[in-house]
Amino acid sequence: MTITVNGKLLDFAEHINVVSLLKYLKIKPTGVAVAINNQIIFKDDWLSASLNDNDNVDVFQVVAGG
């Protein structure tokens, strides 16, 4: 299964969800937001949001300052 994460192609032997992807990328889940195919995945749904072949994932910072 090939997915694109922040513009980079990554290969995975088995199915993964958002939580396991962040773990694999060594990204701390606090303070980040995740979108799959340009759709926001709310934090509570990260465990149930499994990734499919050719998915485009963006991980970016939550910004609340001003």
Partner: peptide, 18 residues
């Protein structure tokens, strides 16, 4: 569409500010 509470959960508050 969703609202701000559909975008960020309160525990995503990181205190990152200026």
């Amino acid at each position: 569409h969703g609202c701000y509470a559909c975008l960020y959960s309160p525990d995503q508050h990181t205190g990152n500010n200026c």
